[in-house]
């Protein structure tokens, strides 16, 4: 869902840019330097998600998985998804430069919202319950993204209104698919590595905790041996 350069009104572009910078600032503040490797690896994972194509009807769509990004990363989803959009724009020509702010807000803000709404629910110990809420998060983030895209178009001119409506309704199957795929992903994660979805910890925190544990364990072993 990349809007191209030249379609939106200047006010919308500037508004999107300001919001994106604010979101990036907040996200980077929650990103201490030793969490950057983990966040970078996760950001790369979500980039790879956009290369995975899933059949929908006679056609296929690529995954976005922004709901899951919000669940796993919280506010840091903002810089993580921004980096992905920047790389796609510069190296693949998807989207554009002046719309980068708008596109970032349209994709990352729903991710953050879905993450905050569902993070507590997804950390449920029952994988099936967690999967249902994870699916809701996935579907909601896509729904919000299409809504935001529709709003950006509507604010840019009345002539875009029918197209904006069409965009929203055409994306309903994609919301369903994203919801199903996110639900399955959350089901697997909550069985294999529930700490990734922990309510009180972002993935990065989890990594540093875990590495601290490993360090102490190794220190103890050294004493014993």
């Amino acid at each position: 869902m990349h809007i191209v350069d030249g379609a939106l009104a200047p006010e919308v572009l500037i508004g999107g840019g300001v919001l994106a910078v604010a979101g990036l600032g907040l996200g980077l503040r929650k990103l201490p330097i030793d969490k950057i490797p983990a966040t970078g690896v996760l950001s790369a994972t979500f980039f790879v998600a956009s290369l995975i194509h899933v059949p929908v009807g006679p056609s296929s769509v690529h995954l976005i998985m922004s709901g899951l990004a919000g669940l796993v990363l919280g506010w840091t989803a903002f810089p993580a998804l921004f980096v992905g959009l920047l790389l796609q724009a510069i190296f693949f020509g998807f989207g554009g430069l002046t719309v980068l702010g708008v596109n970032t807000v349209n994709i990352a803000l729903p991710a953050v919202i879905a993450g905050f709404l569902f993070r507590g629910l997804v950390s449920n110990t029952n994988p099936k319950v967690a999967a249902i809420w994870g699916g809701c998060a996935g579907a909601l983030s896509i729904a919000l993204t299409t809504l935001f895209v529709a709003i950006s178009l509507t604010l840019s001119g009345q002539a875009f209104v029918p197209a904006a409506k069409l965009v929203f309704f055409a994306h309903i199957p994609i919301m369903v698919v994203e919801g199903l795929v996110s639900a399955a992903a959350v089901f697997l994660i909550s069985k294999v590595k529930p700490a990734l979805l922990n309510a009180n910890g972002q993935a990065g925190e989890y990594v540093s905790q875990n590495s601290a544990m490993v360090t102490t364990r190794q220190a103890n072993e050294a004493n014993n041996g």
Binding site: A38, V41, L42, A44, T45, V48, A49, I52, L63, M65, L68, V72, L180, V181, S182, A183, A184, A185, V186, F187, L188, I189, V192, K193, L196, A203, Y206, V207
Partner: peptide, 12 residues
Amino acid sequence: GYLFGMLLVRSL
């Protein structure tokens, strides 16, 4: 979904 979940777990 399992594929992506596994990708996420492994990448972490």
